[in-house]
Design a protein around this nucleic acid. Structure first.
Lengths: 200, 200
DNA sequence: TTAATATTCGACTATTGAGTCGAAATTTAG
DNA sequence: CTAAATTTCGACTCAATAGTCGAATATTAA
């Protein structure tokens, strides 16, 4: 008579609920401004209950990142393993991330910005970090291949990666306005700004 | 027998010392992680002395931003008022900022990233904010002009501004490596990535 | 029904850190 | 030299908040 499947699911659902509440509070109050009391109130539990599901505030925090990066990674796998050329794959992935980021802006803003604001004892033994690194490695690889195949301007790929990464983050997250950027906009921008030397 | 000129200067110097110490602590501990005790220790004063020079922690914080944005603004004025075309002026300014950012990386990282981490009662009555806005307005204007003169790709200038802003920040601040990007690199990247339709 | 198990929670504790206080040391000016 | 003004500071207060405790409630399984 161990825990039933349904019990597991409900527990997971409650965890989700807490993570959502936490995200809301983090968004409005910032990482340190958010208190466990507020998160508890927002998610509809007593504070002590939070600690029944998560051992610490930091674990709530990492829970959000884990969920986000895992989901993102999974949703990208088909694109990653497609057999289109590096340039197309690269751009497809960026567009897909952009779309997901627009649908869940708070979550993605958190995923992309929050980690910088930590200096804790997380010697990269966090799940989300491995997903993040894998994704970055894939993108870097596509960029390298694309450059060597002449599909991108011939530039140092590290530099290019930084530039595109920054460009991308700026595009999605900069500015208060929520005038939605369409997938088309992003595609156009990427194609305009990252010129393909083969297409004159 | 009011305060002498020398006294004023020394006081300003002590303030500088405190700001530098604060910057060091902010860099290692983060905005909220940094304590006034640490800042005091780092800058070589007792804590109470800090409060003799700055009324609150937030004022220390804003002091750094004020100093940074004011200096940056002043150092850019000649470029802003030069009579080169919009594209060239635009790129010159970016290159200049990049160079300054490399010389004072901590300060500039703080200037560009820290403000996001605040949600306080600073209804834009801060000096630094006005300098920041002015600078952004100038850049936006140059971009608009450049686009209408056909010196940039024909794209929505808001979008373009976000993209270039992000690209720039990514280029300077992303990645842990401190392999210095040369001014030449940046110029090359800007010219490669932001293609000039007139130069085929 | 009943006992074990799982879940919930408000009140409490313990720590941390911003800002204050009043007194001491130093500098200035006459 | 002396008194006023300036500068310095360690010790203290006080509020905020992460995390704990033990008891209460709800659910499950037999």
């Amino acid at each position: 008579m161990s825990i039933s499947e349904r019990q597991k699911e409900e527990r997971a659902l409650r965890k989700e609920r807490i993570l959502s509440g936490a995200l809301t509070v983090f968004k409005t109050k910032g990482l340190d401004g958010a208190t466990m009391d507020e998160i508890a109130a927002e998610s509809g539990f007593g504070k002590a209950t939070l600690y029944y599901y998560f051992p610490s505030k930091e674990d709530v925090f990492c829970g959000i990142l884990d969920r986000g990066w895992t989901q993102l990674w999974e949703s990208l796998e088909e694109d990653i393993h497609s057999d289109t050329g590096p340039r197309e794959t690269f751009i497809n992935i960026l567009i897909k991330i952009a779309k997901k980021a627009q649908q869940n802006r708070n979550e993605y803003e958190f995923m992309f910005n929050a980690p910088k604001a930590i200096s804790n004892i997380d010697d990269s033994d966090q799940d989300w970090k491995s997903y993040q690194h894998q994704l970055y490695a894939i993108l870097k690889g596509l960029l390298d291949d694309g450059i060597s195949q002449g599909q991108f301007p011939k530039l140092d790929s590290d530099l290019m990666f930084k530039a595109i990464g920054g460009l991308f983050v700026g595009l999605i997250f900069m500015g208060e306005k929520n005038k939605d950027i369409t997938g088309g906009d992003i595609e156009k921008l990427l194609n305009q700004l990252i010129t393909d030397p083969n297409q004159p």
